[in-house]
Structures are given as C-alpha cells and as structure tokens.
Amino acid sequence: MASVDAAVSAGGGRDAGALVRAAAPAARFVFRGRDAAVATVASALGTPLSLEPCRASQSVGRIALWLGPDEWLLIAPRSEGGLVASVLAKALGGVPHALVDVSDRNSALIVSGPAVEDVLSAGCPLDLDQAAFPVGMCTRTLFAKAEIVLWRTAPAEFRVEVARSFLPYVEGVLAVAVRDGG
C-alpha cells in the first residue's frame, strides 16, 4: 500500500490539505435481518444498531454502519473477528438472520484534513457540508466510478470502505484530488 503511505498534504500551499492513509486491519461482517435479530445483535455486540437511516453507532471499538433498512456493516478490530463471529452466532441461534464474514472483501482508507470535503467532492456527488453530512452519518455512495461506504468519523475525517479490487482506483483518484486540492 505504498501509495497510501506516500500520501502527502495537498495543494502546494493552496489549501491546508488532506491526508489519505490506510485504516487499521478490521474484521467485518454484513448482518442482515429483522427486528428480533437486530436487537439480539445489538446486545451481543455491545453496540446499538442505528434504526435511523444512514447513521453509524459504535462502542468499545465495535462499529455498526447502517447500510439499508435490514443491513448493517459491522466492523471490529481484526483480532476480535473470531470472537465477534462466535458471540453473534451463539446469540442469534434460532433467530432468522444472515451473518456473513466479509473481513477481506473491503479495504478502508481514512481521509482527513481541513480540505477533506473538497478532496472527497472530487468524486462523491453528495453534499459533504457538516449540515448535510454530519459526524456519524454513513452511507453507501459513489466515489468517481467506484461504490464506497462513506462514514464521517470527525468534522475533518472520513472513513472510506471500498471493495478490495477497487482500492487502487479509489486511491488513485484520491491522490489526484489531494494534489489538486480537490
């Protein structure tokens, strides 16, 4: 992931810039199910699952991103993957649901810095102003020609989840956007 490590702040002094780096390795699960299963997962995971559209929730490093009305992306530290899987499987026994390990399916980037909205707006069609996309909002969307999951983790920081084979493309577009100041 050399291109990520080599990311530099943007804009030749035009902007205060943005930084792109790889997120820490993560365990990931797609959880899908109905109300009973949702409540079960929340209590087993120790993190409430947002029922409000496009909102993330997290606690003790375990993250649940609302992706659809019956779909959440669960993220945990890589080392906890096995534990989370077994805890959830045990809690959900007998409750109809789908839990699928997608740890290796996605890669994640952290994009941060004062120019982060402009940089992501080089490819993302959503309004990233904090009034429209506040901290804690998450959604599947597009970044140029790649589908991503975008989550605002702080006023000037986003997490970008992307299917593994699209990572070089997303990194490439981000590198250009960082260089151009968006």
Binding site: V30, R32, V102, D104, R105
Partner: peptide, 12 residues
C-alpha cells in the same frame, strides 16, 4: 421470505 443476500465476490 426470510433470506438475505450478501456479495462475497471480493471476499474469496
């Protein structure tokens, strides 16, 4: 139907 779909093309 109680069944859910997840793309795993890039998992494997």
């Amino acid at each position: 139907l109680q069944v859910w779909l997840t793309s795993t093309t890039e998992q494997w």
